[in-house]
Simulated assay, not measured.
Amino acid sequence: MQAKLKIAIQKSGRLSEKSLALLQECGISFNLGSNTLRTESHNFPLELLLLRDDDIPAYVSDGVADIGILGENVVLEKGYPLEIVEKLGFGKCRLSLAVPRATHYQGLSDFAGKRIATSYPKILGTYLRVAGVEAEIHVISGSVEIAPSIGLAEGICDIVSSGSTLLSNGLKEVEEVLTSEAVLVAKPHLEGEKRDIFDKLLFRLRAVRRSQHNKYILLNAPQDKLDQIIAILPGLKSPTVLPLAEEGWVSVHSVIHEDDFWEKIDALQQAGAEGILVVPIEKMLI
Results as ranks from 00 to 15, higher is better:
A271E: 04
K237C: 05
F261L: 11
H253G: 07
P239V: 10
L268I: 03
A267C: 05
A271V: 03
W249N: 07
K237E: 08
E246N: 10
G272M: 03
D259T: 12
E274W: 00
E274Q: 09
D266F: 11
D260P: 03
V250F: 10
D266I: 09
P280L: 01
D259M: 01
H253K: 12
L268T: 07
V241R: 11
L242K: 05
S238L: 07
H253Q: 11
K264V: 03
L277E: 05
L242M: 10
K237L: 06
F261N: 06
H257R: 07
L277C: 08
K237T: 10
H253Y: 14
V279Q: 09
L277V: 06
D260W: 15
E246T: 12
W249Y: 08
W262K: 13
E258Y: 01
G248Y: 05
V279D: 03
P239Q: 12
L268P: 05
E258C: 02
S238H: 14
P280W: 00
V278W: 15
K237W: 11
L268R: 06
L268D: 09
V255Y: 11
P239Y: 06
K237D: 12
P243Q: 14
V278C: 05
S238M: 04
E247K: 12
A267E: 07
P280K: 00
G248Q: 03
G272D: 03
G272I: 00
K237Q: 08
A273W: 08
V278P: 05
L268Q: 04
V252M: 01
V250A: 08
V252C: 02
I281M: 01
Q270G: 07
P280H: 00
S238W: 15
P239I: 11
V241Y: 03
E247S: 14
E258W: 00
A245G: 13
A245R: 11
V279G: 00
E258N: 08
I265M: 13
V278N: 01
K237H: 13
Q270T: 10
E247Y: 15
D266M: 06
E247H: 14
A273T: 02
P239N: 13
P239M: 11
